Structures are given as structure tokens and as C-alpha cells.
Amino acid sequence: MIRFEGVSHQYGTLEALRGVSFEVPAGALCVLLGESGSGKSTLLRTVNRLIEPTAGRVLLDGRDVAGIDPQALRRGIGYVIQSVGLFPHRSVAGNVATVPRLLGWDRARVEPRVNALLEMVGLDPGTYRDRRPATLSGGQAQRVGLARALAADPPVLLMDEPFSALDPGTRRGLQTALRRIHAETGKTILLVTHDLEEALVLADRIAVMAEGRLVAEGPPAEVLGPGAPEAVRRMVRTGALVLHRLAALPAAGAAENGPAPGSPGLPAGATLEDALLLMLAHGTDSVALEGAPPRHLTMTAILRASAP
């Protein structure tokens, strides 16, 4: 759905992007992950032409975005930002209806769409549709921003650090809502974050940026697996993040051939985190991976796989 071909961008003498090339498959939830200044937000904004590449091109569903009128392009792409950007003088319903009205939808079509979207993002229409943004909490406002981005049913949703300013509990609730919405709608989502934990919670693909370059891209288990580049290794060096890393890695990838008599059984599709928790619960240093041929997993293998 989104294809970057040798995308570069300069701010004066600063190279913000350096020949970035990769694809975001249709229906994927791809996270652009990287430290501050890595170029991830700059890359995201080339998709809706808020930033024009100085070299390379961006294709959306096979079309070079440089050949699409910017306003028409942006009306066909959902866009969610950290600061939400709701219109303070409009009601919640008026904010959600912004793009459909620009596209000429009539009232009979807009009203049920607004109600359905508010319900989708977890806001009761009867309670919230007539409220002003100033009366909303940060989490509620971000839910309205998400509903507004989805209003015209765009195939692509761009999200730039959408939850970074929220408290942890609110953030987790919105992450859960986004995963549910993605599963229900099948939209292609490209989301920027500097938070590895958030990337692991949300992504089915991760693209890691460092100093304007793409340094790793693929499913989380591949990106975080053996041979991960230094930019990724830096993100998993703290103990808390090691557990999140184990949650993204399949146990089968570290399993050894042969049975493990007396060891508790682990389902074939389990993660390394599942294996570690099972070992701790049973006070053992090995688990048997269910299925044929017989295989087992040791604590040593888990520690080896978790090393950054």
C-alpha cells in the first residue's frame, strides 16, 4: 500500500532522510521506530506530502504521491498527531464530520457515520457528540482525533506519536482500542513512536530508523532477533524491555531437538516469554515444546536469545 523508493530529504545541510526504501503491505500495522532525530516523523510526512522528498519517491497504492493534488491526497488519508488538533469552536460531532463534509457528504450520511465512529473509539455518542474539545480529557480528545481520521473511511492511516503525551493507563487503553480498530477495519496503518514497548504491543511490522537511515525492517521477531543492528540493541538493553523482546520472539526459534522428560509442556505457538514464565512457575530450567518431532527449550537458550 505504501512504498518508499530511495527517499531522501535535507533541511539545509542536515540530511534528515538518507535513501530510505521499504514497503508497507496493505492491511499492515507498521511502526516507524527510532530515537529522537532519527527521521521517522519526517518519513511519515512524505506520505501525505506535508514534506516533499529532495530525492526518491513515495508510492501510495501504486501511484506516485508527487503526482496527486496535495489537498485531494490528504483528504484520502487519515492523519492523527500527538497534539490532536481538534477545532475548539466545533462540537465533537462537528470535528469528526470535518472530512466527510469537505467531500460533500450529505447530513443523512454524515450523522450515522459520526455516531458509529464514536462508538468504535469507545465514546458514547449521546454523551460526547455535542461536547466541545475543551471539556474533554487528553485521552478522550485523542479518541475523537482518531474517529475524525477514520471518518471518510480512508484506506491508510498515518499516526505521528499519537499517544506519547498521555498517562500510562490512558495510553494502554488507546493502544488496545487501536489494535481492535485495526482488526475490525483492516486498514493500513503507519505509526511513529520512539517507544519499543508500544511498538511491540501494536506492530505486525517494525521499521527502525537511525540517523535518517532504515536500519531494520520486518516482523518484530525478525527485527529483534539475532543479529539485530546496534540501533535496535540499544533499545533492548534494560531489563524491562528484555521481557517485551521475549514476548515478540517465538519459542520454536530457540528450541533444541530431543525430548525433555518430566518438563512441563509448552504450546508450539508460544513465545520465549511464555517459556520463561512456565519455567519460573514450575521451578524448572527446561520446558518441552508440544508437537512432533520432540523438542525442548532450556533456560540457557532463553538467556542466549534475550542477549542484546
Rank of each mutant, 00 (worst) to 15 (best):
F4E: 02
Y11V: 06
G12N: 02
T13V: 14
E15G: 09
E15W: 08
G19P: 03
V20M: 01
E23F: 01
A28W: 06
L32H: 02
G34E: 02
E35Y: 10
S41H: 01
L43F: 00
R45S: 06
T46P: 02
V47F: 03
V47G: 02
N48C: 03
R49T: 03
P53C: 05
T54Q: 00
G56W: 04
R57F: 11
R57S: 12
V58H: 01
L60C: 07
D61F: 08
R63K: 15
D64P: 15
V65M: 00
V65G: 00
G67L: 07
Y79P: 04
V80F: 03
I81F: 14
G85V: 01
F87M: 05
P88W: 04
G94N: 02
P100L: 05
D106P: 13
V110A: 12
V110I: 15
G122I: 00
L123W: 01
D124N: 15
D124T: 04
P125Y: 02
R129L: 07
P133T: 04
G138Y: 11
G139T: 12
G139L: 14
A141W: 09
Q142I: 06
Q142Y: 06
R148C: 00
L150H: 04
D153M: 14
F163Y: 10
F163S: 12
F163I: 10
D167T: 10
D167H: 11
T170P: 10
Q175V: 11
Q175N: 11
Q175S: 10
Q175M: 11
R179W: 09
R180S: 15
T185I: 14
L190N: 07
H194R: 05
E197T: 13
A203I: 03
R205N: 07
I206V: 04
M209S: 00
L214K: 08
L214H: 10
V215H: 05
A216K: 05
A216S: 07
E217D: 15
E217A: 14
A221P: 11
L224K: 03
G225D: 08
P226M: 08
G227W: 04
A228Q: 03
A228P: 06
E230I: 00
T238M: 13
A240N: 09
L241R: 00
L246W: 10
A248L: 04
A251E: 04
A251G: 15
A252M: 12
P261Q: 07
P264R: 06
P264A: 06
G269D: 10
T271F: 14
E273R: 14
L277F: 13
L278T: 14
L280S: 11
H282I: 09
H282V: 12
H282Y: 13
G283P: 11
V287G: 09
E290F: 09
P293R: 02
P293D: 10
R295A: 05
T298H: 07
T298N: 08
M299Q: 13
M299C: 13
A301W: 07
L303I: 09
A305P: 13
S306N: 09
S306H: 06
